[in-house]
Nucleic acid binder design. Structure first.
Length: 224
DNA sequence: ACCCAGGTGGCCC
DNA sequence: GGGCCACATGGG
């Protein structure tokens, strides 16, 4: 089968599923909190945690900085890893307080590469969380790679490498560097992943299969 | 009773 | 640089 192009896949997904309008949040700060809370966790659990934070008026830089860790832990408990994640949230707001006078604008007003390095220096922020923050909170084009992106890309036959930076480079090199495309594409990949590309594949009605853009599971779906 | 979710950091070799 | 493991809740 011919190797599909990222942009072809993007157009197919957009036509099939329609615009996803990510990130589901009301403010940039809420995007950041959600990005940390959703690490290896179902989004519905994150929604419960976010609701708790809102009800307790903790979903602001100032309040999250002041609140006791144990109280923060209890609020975000439904999102799992609640002690680890409370520490990560504290690390982020602490960094912003000390380095940027609590101003997100100050953090975001710098080149993408510089911003990314700074985010990665904060405890609990790895490459995917950093890129999610850059893309969906700062609104700058940095392609997000998650577990679905890797799995789908490999099953479809787009690439075989596995390292985050390689996969990100692949998409950025093969797509117009546009905020709108990076934003929608990642959201569409998550939608496709949830519906059809779990560890146990459900390829029957997958739009990529229907449109002849995927060769899985023709014998290669064994391991990832 | 499993299996898994929009990862990351800390160890070990 | 790669391979494990802890971190934890809730839904299928």
């Amino acid at each position: 089968m011919k190797k599909p192009l990222p942009h072809t896949i993007y157009k197919t997904l957009l036509k099939t599923f329609g615009p996803q309008r990510w990130w589901p949040a009301e403010t940039p700060f809420e995007v950041i909190v959600g990005a940390i809370l959703t690490q290896s966790t179902n989004w519905t659990n994150v929604e419960k945690a976010i609701r708790n934070l809102k009800r307790q008026k903790l979903l602001t830089l100032r309040e999250m900085s002041k609140v006791k860790s144990v109280k923060l832990q209890k609020a975000i408990r439904p999102s799992g890893y609640f002690r680890a994640k409370a520490k990560k949230l504290k690390a982020f707001v602490g960094h912003l307080q000390q380095q940027h006078k609590e101003k997100l604008k100050s953090l975001f007003d710098q080149p993408i590469s510089q911003l990314r390095v700074e985010l990665l220096s904060i405890h609990g922020i790895g490459p995917e969380t950093a890129d999610s923050i850059i893309l969906y909170a700062a609104n700058k084009p940095s392609f997000v790679v998650d577990a679905y992106t890797k799995r789908i890309g490999q099953r479809v036959g787009l690439f075989e490498f596995t390292k985050y930076d390689q996969i990100q480079r692949f998409f950025e090199d093969n797509l117009p560097k546009r905020l709108k495309i990076y934003n929608e594409f990642h959201a569409l990949i998550v939608k496709l992943g949830k519906d059809y590309c779990q560890p146990k594949p459900r390829c029957e009605n997958c739009p990529l299969k229907v449109n002849n853009l995927c060769s899985s599971p023709a014998g290669q779906q064994a391991s990832f």
